[in-house]
Design a protein around this nucleic acid. Structure first.
Length: 215
DNA sequence: CTCCCGATAT
DNA sequence: ATATCAGGAG
């Protein structure tokens, strides 16, 4: 039993992609402010269950205080906890950032790896964070299944799965590879603006005809 | 599966 | 008061 896509489904998906391209950016923009790959890695670790807006507020000061991988690797954990406190889960995040930066220095020569297997070996780095790095830093086709991509992909009928990894593989099957990174960026823009979890603006939504949950 | 967890919108 | 936010580890 193959998961082959019918012509009709393919056309539906292309219509979704076209409408997204029409309304949102085609740039590979990143909502998490950073200047270096390792800064994006830390920002993404901090972004777990936290708005990117909040993360940017915290990293603005954080990256001025800790200006290198070495600075994070040798940070005092309690002090770092206070520095990132408002992002939530601050004890785990501080511990992971210190462990992760030490691993980068000791095992990867201070370079952020490109490979997903190597990335997910890092403390605090799962598939979502690894795919953010792959897409944004290395521009390798990758799909980031965050809360927005999960919610909206299901609404658009692109997957019926709950598990983020299964959703990632469903989307890889269904979306043209050259659209993976842009789809992510555009869906996150959509999820932050129109199709929010608590109060989606369905009447103003340009995808309402294609939505399975439209009221 | 549970736990980690603050800030904000509803 | 409660749901939600660019999740990950044990």
């Amino acid at each position: 039993m193959s998961g082959r896509i019918t012509k009709k489904e393919k056309e539906r998906i292309q219509k979704i992609l076209d409408l997204l391209d029409e309304h949102y950016t085609r740039e590979y923009k990143c909502y998490l402010n950073h200047e270096t790959p390792w800064q994006l890695l830390i920002a993404t670790i901090l972004s777990a269950q936290c708005t990117d807006e909040r993360v940017n507020l915290v990293t603005k000061d954080l990256f001025h205080k800790y200006t290198s991988l070495e600075a994070f690797a040798s940070a005092d954990q309690k002090e770092l906890e206070q520095d990132i406190h408002s992002t939530g889960f601050y004890k785990n995040k501080a511990k992971n950032i210190i462990a992760c930066t030490n691993m980068l220095l000791k095992e990867y020569g201070g370079q952020v790896p490109e490979n997903i297997e190597e990335l997910t070996k890092l403390a605090g780095v799962g598939r979502k964070t690894a795919n953010v790095i792959r897409g944004n830093i290395y521009h390798e086709p990758s799909i980031v299944v965050d809360t927005h991509v999960k919610r909206i992909s299901r609404k658009l009928g692109l997957t019926k799965e709950e598990d983020p990894v299964k959703i990632e593989f469903d989307l890889m099957k269904v979306l043209p590879k050259e659209h993976w990174i842009l789809f992510n960026i555009q869906i996150i823009t959509h999820g932050r603006g129109l199709c929010t979890a608590r109060a989606p603006q369905c009447e103003q939504c340009f995808l309402k005809e294609l939505c399975k949950e439209r009221k």
